[in-house]
Amino acid sequence: MTDTRILFETRWIRVNQDGKWQYVQRPSSDFAVGILAITPDDEVVLVEQFRIPTGGRVIEIPAGLVGDEPDFEGESLEDTARRELLEETGYRAGKMEFLTRSPSTPGLAREFMNIFLATDLVRETDGGGTEGEDITVHHVPLAGLRQWLAEKQAAGVDVDARLPAALWLAGR
């Protein structure tokens, strides 16, 4: 990075220019978490929601921003992963294992995704996210996941690439 200047900023996003390169960044944090959640019955817990930038619904692993609200400033990556998993899916993880950190979209954004594997899950609520989120929770047997995803894609639902990446990292 050289001489970075802010071109535009809102509560959620900042557009920077560094030399000739323009990129986006979140004002609150450069980190996000994604959680590959596997139930004791060997099901993967996925979320589906409408994503305005894609113009459609997307199947994803549960995920969220680190330090995105004043109440969560200074929260650790693992604590954020645990909170987001509970908010979005209703599950509390007995075990949370860090798998990797990777830039989300390195040519566009300064954001690093931290992927965790959550196991020993206990269902506490129905999930669905916080107010303003319209999240559908899916429980998909790992043995039938490929076919289920193909059917979703054939129906016009996108699948986030972090899902197969997380499965590979977890050896699933």
Rank of each mutant, 00 (worst) to 15 (best):
T2K: 09
T4Y: 00
R5T: 14
R5N: 04
I6Y: 01
T10Y: 04
T10E: 10
R11A: 15
W12A: 09
W12D: 14
W12R: 12
V15T: 06
N16I: 05
G19Y: 05
G19L: 08
G19S: 08
K20I: 05
Q22P: 00
V24D: 01
Q25D: 08
Q25P: 00
Q25M: 07
Q25I: 02
P27R: 01
P27L: 07
S29N: 10
S29P: 03
S29D: 13
D30E: 13
D30N: 11
D30V: 07
F31E: 14
A32M: 09
G34Y: 00
I35A: 01
A37M: 08
A37C: 07
D42C: 04
E43I: 03
V45A: 04
L46K: 01
E48K: 10
F50E: 04
F50R: 05
R51K: 09
I52R: 14
P53T: 01
G56V: 07
V58F: 04
E60N: 11
E60K: 10
E60G: 00
E60P: 01
I61K: 00
I61D: 07
L65R: 07
G67C: 10
G67V: 04
G67S: 13
D68E: 11
E69D: 12
F72T: 15
F72Q: 07
E73R: 15
G74D: 08
S76I: 07
S76Q: 08
E78M: 12
E78Q: 15
E78G: 12
D79H: 09
T80W: 02
T80S: 13
A81G: 06
R83L: 08
E84Q: 11
E87V: 03
E87C: 02
E88Y: 02
E88A: 08
T89L: 02
T89P: 01
R92S: 10
R92P: 00
A93R: 06
A93T: 09
K95L: 13
M96L: 15
F98L: 13
L99V: 07
R101K: 13
S102E: 14
P103R: 09
P103V: 06
P103Y: 12
P103A: 08
S104V: 12
T105P: 00
P106W: 11
G107E: 15
G107Y: 13
L108Y: 14
R110K: 13
M113W: 07
F116M: 09
F116R: 04
A118F: 05
A118L: 10
T119E: 14
D120T: 11
D120K: 14
L121G: 01
V122H: 06
D126R: 08
G127Y: 02
G127S: 06
G127I: 04
G127N: 06
G128Q: 05
G128S: 06
G129P: 04
V137A: 06
H138T: 04
H138G: 02
H138N: 06
H139V: 00
A143S: 14
G144N: 14
L145Y: 06
L145M: 09
L145S: 05
R146D: 14
R146A: 15
L149M: 13
A150N: 10
E151M: 08
D158S: 12
A161L: 11
R162V: 10
L163V: 12
L163C: 08
L163E: 09
L163K: 04
P164C: 05
A165L: 14
A166I: 08
A166S: 12
A166R: 00
L169T: 02
A170Q: 06
A170V: 11
A170Y: 06
R172N: 03
